[in-house]
Design a binder for these strands. Structure first.
Lengths: 112, 112
DNA sequence: CGTGTAAGGAATTCTGACACG
DNA sequence: CGTGTAAGGAATTCTGACACG
């Protein structure tokens, strides 16, 4: 596994509990749960039912917080998110991602 | 900030609570606290005093678990860790790290 | 619509200590 | 030495609901 792939898994791994997310984002626990209800984020659940978030979720929440401050409603934010994810999976973007992966593999091999 | 540096911050950021670390490593909470007492790991404390670990800590704990299974004592493991960290900070390694950083910055700029 | 709060219960975490070996 | 456990207390998290607006 290349270094970059390994690092990416850190970003996506859901291991952070809601209190820590609250500290990191400045959002209240209530707000974080509400944004989940509106499907703006989807934490996992631990074996005992507590919510677990990733760094990716935290970034998304900070983005959400900014938009909310501008007065954007959660419904609109949801649309924005869907749009961005669509864009991220179009063919041109996928080609860029593959190229980046190859470059990284190459240079990790040569210099690490 | 380059992608690689950003990812690294995920690996080092102390945000995971001890119960999650226990699940992820298979070690008991008691064991994890004991390894801290022996200075094999150094979690941070949240505002309310709970321990917070990074992905880096988790990797180290898995390494520790392997060595303990082989019967290696914590004192020996501590020496191993000190040795490895020394090696990681010698001049040759630092040069490699800087080169890798430059390569990443270059290719992130060109292709992302 | 978005967020605060009180309610009741369950699970977590902390420390210092005793046990075993 | 390394780890389990019971003890007591403090803080966390969960859900469903009422409040305000």
């Amino acid at each position: 596994m290349s270094l970059l792939q390994e690092e990416r898994s850190y970003k996506d791994k859901k291991v952070i509990s809601i209190g820590t997310v609250s500290e990191l984002t400045g959002l209240s626990v209530r707000q974080i749960r509400y944004y989940e209800e509106r499907q703006l984020i989807s934490p996992e659940r631990s074996s005992k039912g507590t919510r677990k978030y990733s760094f990716m979720d935290i970034e998304r929440l900070m983005n959400i917080a900014d938009l909310r401050e501008e007065g954007v409603q959660t419904t609109e934010i949801l649309k924005d998110i869907r749009k961005r994810e669509e864009k991220l999976n179009n063919p041109a973007q996928l080609r860029k991602k593959m190229l980046q992966g190859q470059l990284n593999a190459h240079f990790q091999y040569k210099h690490n």
